[in-house]
Simulated scan of single mutants.
Amino acid sequence: MVGITGASGVGIGARLLDVLSSGGHTTHLVLSDAARHILELECTISEEELKARASACWDNDQLWAPIASGSYRIDAMVVAPCSMKSLSSIANGYADTLIARAADVCLKEGRTLVLVPRETPLSLVHLENMVRAARAGARILPACPAYYHHPTTVQQCIDFIVGRVLDVLGLEHQLYKRWHPPSEMLE
């Protein structure tokens, strides 16, 4: 399941959905209302084009969707980007949206939940919510690209973050060059 919430960086969730779908994975997509607006501002694809890449799409208020139940099996959930509002809901068990409820289900069922927070600077409240979510079982993967592979485009930075998400999910990819120290560092 891919949840895309209302933080800058919706291209991360869109790229993740692309990679998962093209890899033959069944995907469920949920966009928050704020994510819909940010998609228009930041991306060149429409909401309809994004939804066409998913196996199933749900509105964030459809709390009766199958992914809201622990009896419905999913392998993992990724919230990318994860707004601070969504982080707070997830960290504190306030499941008033489908994204928050599906995340709550992942935590209670011991399933993989990856949160990709996208905010800077971080307040103490944000940090405490990340710790609370991590203690509950979520993996916190901030949208912080590496630079050792010398990215020259925003897309390369997005691919690095999506690649790290795929690493956490245990999925193979070729989205970025992995770290290998120069030979002179090994001497």
Rank of each mutant, 00 (worst) to 15 (best):
E42H: 11
C82F: 12
A95R: 04
Q155G: 05
S86E: 13
S22G: 06
R111N: 05
L166E: 07
E49I: 00
D33G: 12
F160H: 15
R15N: 07
S69H: 12
G11D: 03
I90A: 12
D33W: 08
G110Q: 10
P142E: 11
C157W: 02
D18W: 02
Q156T: 10
E184L: 13
S86Q: 12
E42A: 12
G70Q: 07
P66N: 09
E49K: 07
I4H: 09
L39V: 09
V125S: 03
L113T: 06
V165A: 14
C106L: 14
A52V: 00
F160G: 03
A138G: 14
L17A: 04
K85H: 14
P142M: 13
T153V: 13
I140G: 08
S86N: 14
S71E: 10
Y148E: 03
D75Q: 12
G137T: 03
Y176R: 02
G23S: 14
G137V: 02
N92Y: 04
A136Y: 00
V125Y: 03
D96T: 14
S86Y: 06
P151E: 13
P81D: 10
R132T: 15
H173I: 09
H28T: 10
S55W: 09
A91C: 11
H126F: 09
E184N: 13
R164W: 13
A100Q: 04
V105N: 01
H173P: 02
L17N: 01
E48V: 08
V168Y: 08
D96A: 03
P117C: 11
K85E: 15
H180N: 14
D59K: 13
E128Y: 04
D18C: 08
A146P: 00
L124G: 05
H37L: 13
E128K: 14
V105S: 04
D75M: 01
G24S: 03
H173T: 05
L29F: 11
H126L: 11
R164E: 12
S8W: 03
G110L: 07
E184A: 11
S88W: 08
P121T: 05
A103P: 07
L115A: 12
I161W: 01
M84Y: 06
K108I: 05
V79F: 13
A103I: 06
R53P: 02
E47G: 07
H150R: 15
K108R: 12
R53C: 07
Y147V: 04
L169K: 08
N60K: 00
I45A: 00
T120E: 10
S8E: 02
P182E: 14
L98G: 02
I140P: 07
M77V: 11
A68W: 01
L29K: 04
L16G: 03
A65E: 02
R132G: 01
V78K: 05
H126P: 08
A35Q: 11
C57L: 01
P181F: 06
